[in-house]
């Protein structure tokens, strides 16, 4: 019974997302807010300001470089977390 209610709520969730999506800008609309508010500066000035022809690199490493630092730190965190969880586990087992 709870399972069926769960399925029903999942269908309702999908319906909600679809209903709301009707108010979103259609795919590929060149006049949508994301296309007109912040990004034109990246496209027009990236090469002049950062020297990178690839605008994704320009945004990644320069305009939003701090995000990328955070991203690298996330990877680093994953590495240290795995070390903490698994390196000790092997050692304890050997004893």
């Amino acid at each position: 019974m709870t399972r069926k209610l769960g399925y029903l709520s999942l269908v309702l969730l999908a319906a909600l997302f679809i209903y709301v999506s009707l108010d979103l800008p259609p795919t590929g609309d060149p006049h949508s807010p994301p296309a007109t508010h912040v990004s034109p500066r990246y496209i027009e000035k990236a090469y002049k300001e950062t020297g990178a022809a690839n605008m994704v690199t320009a945004v990644l490493a320069d305009y939003r470089g701090y995000d990328t630092l955070g991203e690298t730190v996330v990877v680093f965190t994953a590495g240290v977390a795995t070390l903490l969880l698994l390196e000790g586990a092997f050692k304890f087992k050997k004893r």
Binding site: T50, D62, G65, T72, V75, A78
Partner: peptide
Amino acid sequence: EAEVRALGTLGIEIGVTMAVMGVFVVI
């Protein structure tokens, strides 16, 4: 300034490369 920025970008990209390689090999 743009060239200096490009060099700085290259520097951090090298760091990212080393970090990602190290972490994935460790995992």
